[in-house]
Design a protein around this nucleic acid. Structure first.
Length: 988
RNA sequence: GGGGGAGUGGCGGAACGGCAGACGCAGCGGACUUAAAAUCCGCCGGGGGCGACCCCAUGUGGGUUCGAAUCCCACCUCCCCCA
């Protein structure tokens, strides 16, 4: 069989057909084996089909599942379709077709491609979230949440995507734009359905500690949930209205010099005084037009309007003005903030701009203070005095620029400044760690309150009438660039200028103030989250209808369970209306219904559920995909779940992965599942980039509709290779970008399988880089993987004629055979390495280990050539290597493995063979090369028995000629011996 | 601005306290061939030496250690997420 050609197309077709015929991937539920549930994120079927980028997800999962199966696990490895939702509907609209037609077509193509690259899915468990027997249960889940008080309808300023003509959940808004079509999001007030995910915020954070997920994803979820601890403090308007604010810094309350309400805050109308009304109304309109991203941007200059009323700060009864500004969101906290400009950056900017007092109430921990002094206002010798006191300063353009550290230095400086200030018309200011103004005839006036600020301001105006327009001291100080870093800080520190609390240490200030607020009824401890409730309504056709009926008499009535599913009406025209109403609202047969409770004429809810509802439970459906009495079989779910290995892209970090965890916890609370986390281990595959030619956009040119997502470089247009041909090379910008339809750089698995075979594609995808790394697609690398397939093919075929299936009877470990011994060692080392690497998802090094084994086998082959007196043990060692090589290859390249298995005269499928076991004694080297170092530098290498003791190693190293040459004239101070590795001689 | 991650030959990467560059790609040389492809064998970080060998080298600068690509600190650069 030596000259058999590697006809991968024929081989791959043959084995795919045989696997199908044997129903090889069918998973049985009844078993005494340990279970392994390996799952890929289920994809939304797109018309573009799968790229080699998608395969980077499916191939490694398949390898892990095949490996687990050979290791004796009962493996569940299913696949299904996230077919409901915006992506599928938008694509159908673009195709001027209907999702009921495009979806099945795209699914068929995906399935064909997955089979083509040899992924071993149990297709008998295939699910489709848009089929009624699936979404019936999505609706059932809605009712479960509804009954548990976790689904509610409320008017809300929702994220409205004008292009998709529907609202989006917060998680679906990226940089103020739609996650699917990149249109800018607007705010619209609409009645919307929400799931109360905020009830689970703490559990969603806490349970992250129990799961094996990438730290980056956990961190993103923690940040997204955004738990913060602080206090709710009750301020009162002068008319007695309570205005509750949430703050994370109750220790800064004494520095609250004004208050800001969100423009949408319900009290704004009432508290606006008639003279401010016009301006306030105008500002409210302005704010409504802005996107959330614009409103929160720290770059943007602060805007706001004083509404004419005042509130009372409950800690010091001070009257503070109430403003509205767009940087306060109704959605976060209570929609009202106390503003502490001295210690909050945005408040600082705002107060500076509008001339609101800024009073520091937290001491600086870095001890930094600054002072700038005009040389004509101090007497001769000032500089010398400073120098003598060890105070750092710089003198330029007639000014001393003085930087101080710590109280001691500041005190010394203040003495000097008082002593040398001679000019009655001038003053010296100190800012930062100390806030004070020194006047020649008044001495030191500390700046520590509104009263002292007023006093200082009036003295300054007397002396310098040109500063008449200065509204606050901070405004004056902020004009001096030298002071900039000393004026503001947001750190925790000891409290100052805070009445009785002055002097409270920074470490306990927050807790002490909170306790006092609670005790005196001024406020209470509070936890706040950035996480908002999950907006589930979509004003779109292609989703699961929300199973609610609105009855004029009974109100909201859930559709009785036995009436599920609420079928999506089969209509030709489903395009969004843009009115804020779902297209379903225009279908009377759907809308008009009798109330299930009282029988009166009622209306169905016409919103559908966003696609993330479907994907929040699909992993449960696979355990009993055809069950029609429940969403899943409780016992089977308890057996199979949680998912042992979940593989997909990192882009769902705060969407699907958060929602699915939430639903699982709800199920747990309802007693339906015995686990609280759905996915025990999560892995994120790296992206695949293609080297893509671009050209810059011409003036006035706009992107066509195809160019949608991932369009980060707005002024670059991707070119096809043909277009690139036609342009001069200096006009072309080559960049590595993610493969996407819009970039026209997609490499398909079909093309690769046709040219190099599915096995070569699988090898390359596994070998090119660590699983989680972004990779740059290269056809050269593909060729290398193909060459490896050829090498394996020839090696096994060459040996097949001489292969003795009974090799175990002639194998020997004791014979000191120069061929058998090292070859057997390599074989057993490789068995160990490949198994360990697959467990750790280190597929690149697993492939490398197999390449090494193949290289060694090739090297041994000439010694075993026909006519040579090769020992029986050597031949058996080669038999062993060949047989194990085929089995080790099986999870990664199953087609060629099965073919070679057959070539060796074996029956059945490699997948059904047990994973090879390695013998640690055979794998162990009996001689090792150790390194002799002098002062950490390698001087010699020595081959010694692997188990040589420290004394032996030490004396071997010391007797080395090269070592001794280097030791001439030196004394040995110490010898470090690391068994099996090295000897380091420290000498000097 | 905050959080997460990463910087190693011409390239992808390996090693993750103990011989830096496994394995592969590209390149170079040889064998086979009329020739090419394919295949097989060899070389392949930089500098020096005829040579056995020697020196330098893992983004930059410090530190810990007998020993640092690996651990710690600072800085620079890039990627991702949240502002």
């Amino acid at each position: 069989m030596a000259d058999r050609k590697y006809d991968f197309t024929q081989i791959e077709r043959k084995w795919q057909a045989r696997w199908k015929e044997a129903d090889l991937f069918r998973t049985l539920d009844t078993t005494d084996k340990p279970k392994f549930y390996g799952l890929d994120f289920f994809p939304y079927p797109s018309g573009a089909g799968l790229s080699v980028g998608h395969c980077r997800n499916y191939i490694p999962t398949d390898v892990a599942c095949r490996y687990k199966r050979m290791k004796g696990f009962n493996v569940l490895h299913p696949m299904g379709w996230d077919a409901f939702g915006l992506p599928a509907e938008n694509e159908a609209i673009k195709q001027r077709s209907h999702p009921k037609r495009t979806v099945p077509q795209y699914i068929a193509n995906y399935k064909r491609q997955m089979d083509l690259i040899g992924i071993g899915y149990d297709w008998s468990r295939e699910i489709n979230s848009s089929s009624p027997d699936y979404y019936k249960w999505t609706q059932w889940f809605f009712l479960l949440l509804y009954k548990r008080g976790l689904a509610y309808r409320a008017m809300s300023p929702a994220n409205w995507c004008p292009s998709c003509a529907t609202v989006l959940a917060n998680e679906e808004v990226k940089d103020g734009k739609c996650w699917r079509c990149s249109s800018f999001i607007e705010k619209r007030d609409l009645p919307q359905w929400f799931f109360k995910i905020t009830n689970y915020a703490d559990r969603l954070i806490d349970d992250l500690d129990t799961i094996d997920w990438p730290e980056s994803i956990k961190s993103m979820q923690r940040n997204w949930i955004g738990r913060s601890e602080g206090a709710e403090v009750v301020f009162t308007s002068e008319h007695g209205d309570e205005i509750v604010v949430y703050t994370t810094r109750p220790d800064t309350l004494w520095g609250a010099t004004f208050m800001v309400l969100a423009p949408e805050h319900p009290l704004v109308d009432k508290l606006t005084t008639p003279d401010r009304r016009t301006e306030v109304e105008e500002y409210k309109k302005l704010a409504q037009r802005e996107t959330a991203i614009e409103r929160q941007s720290t770059e943007k200059e602060k805007t706001g309007v004083f509404i004419g009323s005042y509130a009372i700060n409950p800690v010091n009864d001070r009257r503070i003005p109430i403003w509205i500004s767009d940087y306060v969101m109704m959605g976060y906290g209570t929609g009202a903030i106390m503003s502490v400009p001295a210690h909050d950056e945005r408040d600082f900017e705002f107060a500076l701009k509008f001339g609101i007092p800024i009073i520091p109430v937290i001491d600086r921990i870095d001890g930094l203070a600054k002072s700038r002094v005009f040389d004509e206002i101090v007497e001769e010798g000032f500089a010398e005095e400073l120098g003598g006191a060890g105070i750092e300063f710089e003198y330029r353009d007639s000014f001393f620029y003085i930087t101080l550290r710590g109280d001691e230095q500041i005190d010394r400086y203040m003495d000097i400044a008082c002593g040398y200030l001679s000019n009655n018309e001038a003053w010296i200011e100190i800012v930062g760690k100390r806030w004070a103004f020194i006047f020649a005839n008044r001495g030191v006036v500390p700046f520590d309150s509104h009263e002292s600020e007023r006093e200082i301001l009036s003295m300054i105006r007397e002396r310098a009438p040109s500063l008449d327009d200065i509204r606050t001291l901070m405004e004056l100080l902020a004009r001096e660039p030298f002071y900039r870093d000393a004026l503001f800080h947001a750190e925790y520190g000891d409290m100052i200028n805070s009445g009785e609390f002055s002097g409270t240490p920074g470490a306990t200030a927050k807790r002490q103030v909170t306790e006092w607020l609670e005790k005196t009824g001024r406020g209470k401890f509070a936890v706040n989250y950035k996480l908002r409730d999950w907006l589930i309504s979509r004003q779109r056709y292609w989703g699961a209808p929300i199973p609610i009926i609105h009855c004029p008499k009974c109100g909201e009535v859930p559709v009785p369970e036995e009436d599920l599913p609420v079928l999506l009406p089969d209509v030709e025209h489903y395009e969004p209306t843009g009115s804020g109403e779902s297209p379903l609202a225009a279908i009377p047969e759907f809308v008009n219904v009798a109330c299930p409770t009282c029988g009166s004429a009622a209306r169905r809810e016409t919103d559908t559920m966003g696609g993330f509802a479907c994907s929040s439970w699909y992993f449960l459906r696979y355990v009993s995909p055809h069950l029609d009495t429940a969403p899943f079989d409780k016992d089977l779910a308890a057996y199979w779940l949680p998912v042992d290995l979940y593989v997909g892209g990192a882009e769902h970090a705060v969407m699907h992965l958060l929602y699915a965890r939430f639903w699982t916890k709800v199920l747990y609370d309802a007693g339906l599942v015995p686990f609280v986390e759905p996915f025990a281990k999560l892995m994120n595959q790296g992206m695949v980039l293609a080297y893509t030619p671009h050209r810059t956009m011409e003036a006035g040119e706009t992107l066509d509709e195809e160019a949608d997502e991932d369009e980060t470089e707005r002024d670059l247009i991707a070119l096809t290779p043909e277009e690139a041909e036609k342009l001069p090379s200096d006009k072309i910008i080559w960049k590595w970008v993610k493969m996407s339809k819009s970039k026209r750089n997609v490499v398909t698995p079909d093309a690769m399988a046709e040219q190099y075979g599915a096995d070569a594609l699988r090898t390359y995808e596994l070998f090119v880089a660590p699983f989680e790394d972004t990779v740059q697609w290269s056809e050269e690398g593909m060729k290398g993987a193909y060459r490896f397939m050829g090498r394996v093919w020839r090696l096994v075929n060459d040996w097949a004629d001489r292969f003795n299936p009974e090799w175990r009877s002639s194998i020997s470990n004791s014979v000191d055979d120069p061929i058998a011994k090292p070859l057997r060692r390599k074989t057993h080392q490789t068995i160990r390495k490949v198994g360990e690497d697959i467990e750790q998802f280190a597929f690149n090094t697993a492939v490398a280990a197999l390449m090494e084994l193949v290289n060694e086998m090739y090297a041994a082959l000439p010694e075993l050539a026909e006519g040579r007196s090769a020992s029986e043990a050597s031949c058996a060692a080669m038999d062993e290597a060949v047989e194990n090589l085929v089995l080790l290859l099986s999870p990664m390249v199953p087609h060629i493995a099965d073919e070679l298995w057959e070539t060796l005269g074996k029956r059945g499928f490699t997948l059904e063979q047990p994973w090879p076991e390695y013998d640690p004694d055979v794998a162990k080297a009996d001689e090792v090369e150790i390194v002799a170092q002098v002062n950490g530098k390698v001087r010699d290498r020595m081959v010694v028995p692997a188990d040589a003791d420290e004394e032996t190693l030490k004396s071997a190293a010391l007797s080395s000629e090269r070592v001794r040459a280097d030791l001439v004239g030196k004394t040995v101070k110490k010898v470090i011996v690391v068994k099996g590795k090295l000897v380091n001689i420290v000498a000097g």
